[in-house]
Design a binder for these strands. Structure first.
Lengths: 228, 228
DNA sequence: TCCTATAAATGACATTTATCATTTATTTTT
DNA sequence: AAAAATAAATGATAAATGTCATTTATAGGA
């Protein structure tokens, strides 16, 4: 089995401040698993007894509304960690994590995490910073959901998707989402999302190649996202 | 000057886990101040070099949108603390804190807070839990802003205001907000908020006594907030 | 207490967004 | 490869929400 000490994924997350000994302990206790597209890594309301470190693959974090609609709160990719909020706050998981493609993830038991939190203040601080940053993003999202029209939110979301996932060899945003998932991200009806995407294409701001989306004019999208 | 060891406010927040010695240190270094209605305790983008402990009075936490609109993210009252997120994440303050009425607050310098964080793991953990809980609420808010109609969000907000501030001796929600502030909480136009409040009154669900709002039928509001 | 400024309320109307129905395209299964 | 299932696209229409204009009420200052 692979070794946490040599894993490059920890470069990208809070695990980077762990000592060699701590990483060896993680290696000894961790399990690697494959999550198939569509499967859940975490489920809203369930408890979790460890931390997931994403090796490869993408997932969406969602919340089911009282009216049965899915709201996508955040996208997660290789190098990100999941489950630390629940471990730290000793509360059930608040969001569903559903694989958008096949994923490889490592699972590190809660006990090892808590031990490092106790022994390694820098590690704790990194986890706190991670959660603080999420809170900061969430507050921005509240404001935008509440006050920006759907068109602006779509533009914003496309920019942010490219920011998160980058582009493939054809300059398309490197993630495959259904129109429904895009709609569930910006908080609108699927038909509205489709119509607004078509308009953006007609205006030459983006190109649509099946499910792949290519941003042609980033400045224009930025303006739209700010209401111009 | 008053003494942190004897202050009952710490019962309500993360400071409750501090030792007597730590509280004495806080007492020695803290400053008490009065914030007048309308004044800012914190300002978006500014840095902050300490933690505020609210003794008395209420404030709103807001974010200014790119379009110039104010979004109210959260309400804060006596017993709450402010500024710990910024201290922990070493980032500028993300929200404005504006007094809704005259406030009495204590300011504890960053150095003392950081020392307690280092020495007192239970204190750190309480701060983390506080931030985690805020994140959890924020995610719920995103989902509701994105997917619920304005009427539902108004009902939800009225219930939550009564939850936070309680009722006065006439059973009215114990906080004075302008219609514009209510609109900025639920994310709608002031006129829409006014109209929906009038409708709720006409339907006998609430009563409007000037700026004071009395909830007459909590169950009915709960149903409305869930789309029935 | 009156005057002025600000907030609340309401109507008319425009715009945005959702819903329903249907067609067309794309995947998936057999 | 054909059939079936699912997703995307589009039109027609309804519903929700925002904007502007105006009136009425309330609060704060001279």
């Amino acid at each position: 089995m692979s070794n946490c000490s040599h894993c490059i994924m920890k470069r990208f997350n809070a695990l980077k401040t762990l000592t060699h000994d701590e990483l060896e302990r993680f290696s000894d206790h961790k399990t690697s698993l494959i999550i198939k597209k569509g499967e859940n890594l975490m489920t809203e309301g369930n408890s979790i007894n460890g931390l997931y470190c994403i090796q490869d693959g993408k997932c969406k974090l969602t919340k089911l509304n009282t009216n049965g609609k899915e709201q996508i709160i955040k996208f997660v990719k290789g190098g990100d960690i999941l489950g630390h909020r629940s471990i730290l706050s000793e509360e059930p998981v608040g969001l569903n994590a559903t694989a958008l493609e096949d994923m490889r993830v490592c699972f590190i038991p809660k006990g090892d995490i808590l031990e490092s939190i106790k022994d390694n203040p820098q590690f704790s601080l990194n986890l706190i910073k991670n959660i603080s940053l999420q809170l900061s993003h969430a507050n921005t999202a509240i404001s935008q959901m509440a006050q920006k029209p759907v068109k602006d939110r779509l533009a914003e979301t496309l920019l942010s998707l490219e920011e998160i996932f980058g582009v493939d060899n054809e300059d398309c945003i490197d993630v495959i989402l259904t129109r429904e998932e895009i709609a569930n991200t910006i908080g609108t009806a699927t038909e509205s999302a489709i119509r607004l995407l078509s308009n953006l294409k007609k205006d030459g701001v983006i190109d649509l190649l099946g499910k792949k989306i290519k941003i042609l004019n980033k400045n224009s999208l930025k303006n739209i996202s700010e209401g111009y």
